[in-house]
Design a protein around this nucleic acid. Structure first.
Lengths: 224, 224
DNA sequence: TCCTAATAGATATTTATTTATCGATATAAA
DNA sequence: TTTATATCGATAAATAAATATCTATTAGGA
């Protein structure tokens, strides 16, 4: 039990906001690397990304990368450190369920592969879509999903089906042995058997934007 | 200055996590309403959404809706309260820049309209796309964007262009008088003139998923 | 009519995250 | 070689968010 508890502690020990900032650093540092910048201080990173140096330093600290006073960090070391830390070094294979416009967008989104996500194929309930190719990936009938998950030992499922069938699709995936689900349907999915669910909620982001806009416009009306 | 400061305080006073949970309640309560459920307790909401009652109560409190002991809240009142609170009652018109697969997905995403977002048209740099129709919305040449923003007084811009042209597109929008930008390009956009930027970062979510998966798999290797 | 239990609302506590402070270290200039 | 300074790393404080506790209210049954 001890080792399990320890693991849980480690998971809880990484602030999710930090995890969300790491890809931002990663992208930025890759750009720097192309510009032949090999060392950088957290102060400079913070200035460019509009963060504060202390936060950048703490985030980098999480990855285990160390810097040198007066010099800063090795750009390459942070890039590698982030990739290693987030598990991007060994690519994970994924299946995508729901080949509608959102599914197609995700299949077409460049760069997931460099984040360790390799979407092998798509699945759709619409028989007319079966056999087609979207952004280089074949679309199969949904019936084939569980069997292919088992045979290919795929561990990540991406759900881009309509809200009503999201839980059913997730259940199929989890039954077949999926370990993690990235859910773009606007409903929360109930996991079982320790499966990891990451809900992507576009409405939530829109809510933040709407509220800020509303408050801003209210403020303008007070002081035009 | 006082009123401005006050407004800022109000903005800061709403926890962003609460703002992100409100659409989840909204969606859930609309389903309840269709099932002819008219009153509900925070305990019941929490149980269904896998949250805790206290958090639900605090979130609802933010919208100004009050409940009654032993009865709970009026479902309709919360729905209306959330819509009012987030500014979804009066629809905001938006333009979308970048009619690629992600842009098309967003144009096709049902339900934004009920969240007060009305995407009027799309714009693209590719001349071949100009004049086409995607999910019922016309695609214009990017050159026409600033003029149309000014003439139609559109306040929200949605960016789904590639990373390299994201800032340029945002600059065009901000110059033309856009108040808020919803940015799906994987780069952070620098605002000016008090423009609100909401960055949607798919890589960030993927990072959280990757890390949890990595930790889980590491734990499995320790105890198979 | 009175009592019980469920529930909202207010207040307090805990936890997580961000931000600040301080000391140590290594480079570069004097 | 010495000194000044930029920087990291560790520790501490402040802030934000989540959770727990307590109090008051009210429907519904005894």
């Amino acid at each position: 039990m001890e080792s399990k508890d320890e693991k849980i502690k480690i998971v809880r020990g990484i602030p999710e906001p930090t995890l969300r900032r790491l890809p931002v650093y990663h992208q930025y540092l890759r750009e720097l690397e192309q510009k032949k910048v090999f060392f950088i201080s957290c102060t400079a990173i913070a200035a460019d990304l509009k963060l504060i140096p202390i936060q950048v330093r703490k985030d980098i600290e999480m990855t285990g990368v160390v810097g040198r006073p007066k010099i800063g960090y090795s750009v390459k070391q942070i890039i590698d450190g982030i990739e290693e830390f987030l598990g991007w070094k060994k690519s994970s294979e994924a299946f995508l369920a729901g080949a509608g416009s959102l599914g197609a967008a995700i299949l077409g989104y460049q760069g997931f592969k460099e984040y360790g996500l390799d979407i092998l194929a798509a699945f759709d309930n619409n028989p007319a879509k079966a056999g087609t190719i979207i952004h280089g990936r074949k679309v199969y009938a949904m019936e084939k999903l569980p069997d292919l998950i088992r045979r290919m030992k795929v561990k990540i499922g991406i759900i881009t089906v309509p809200a009503v069938s999201a839980q059913k699709t997730a259940d199929i995936m989890m039954d077949a042995g999926i370990s993690a689900i990235w859910n773009f349907a606007p409903v929360k999915i109930s996991p079982f058997g320790g499966v990891i669910i990451q809900n992507e909620n576009l409405a939530a982001s829109l809510a933040v934007l709407s509220k800020k806009l509303k408050v801003m416009q209210a403020a303008e009306n007070i002081r035009p």
